[in-house]
Amino acid sequence: MCFIISIVGLFLAYSFYNADNRLLAGGSVLVSAFFIFLMIRNILHVKKRKEK
C-alpha cells in the first residue's frame, strides 16, 4: 500500500511541476519520500522478525 501511495504521489509531483506549481510538487515529493521510508522500515522490521 505504501508503494502505491508513493507512486501516486510522485505522479502528482510531476504533474504539479509541469503546471509550474512548485510548492505542491515539493509537498508531493515529501509525502512520497515519507511513504517510501515507512515501506523500507517495515521491510527491515519483518526481515528481523523472520531471522528470530
Rank of each mutant, 00 (worst) to 15 (best):
D20P: 00
S32L: 00
S15R: 14
K50W: 02
G27P: 00
E51R: 15
I4Y: 08
I5K: 10
V8K: 15
I7P: 01
F16S: 08
V31Y: 08
K47N: 10
M1Q: 14
N18A: 05
N21M: 06
I36A: 11
C2R: 13
I4R: 11
S15V: 02
L30C: 08
H45I: 15
K50A: 14
K47V: 11
I4S: 08
A33M: 11
L10G: 07
R41E: 05
I5Y: 01
R49A: 15
G9W: 02
I43P: 00
I43T: 07
Y14W: 11
K52C: 05
N42E: 15
F37C: 09
V29T: 04
S6F: 02
S32E: 01
S32M: 01
F3G: 08
L44I: 13
M1D: 12
K47T: 10
L38F: 04
D20E: 13
H45G: 10
R41N: 14
H45E: 15
F34A: 05
A33W: 05
L12Y: 09
F11D: 01
V29C: 08
A33T: 12
S28K: 03
I43N: 08
V31N: 06
L10S: 08
M1Y: 10
L38W: 05
L44R: 15
F35I: 01
L38C: 09
A33L: 15
A33C: 06
L38S: 09
V46M: 14
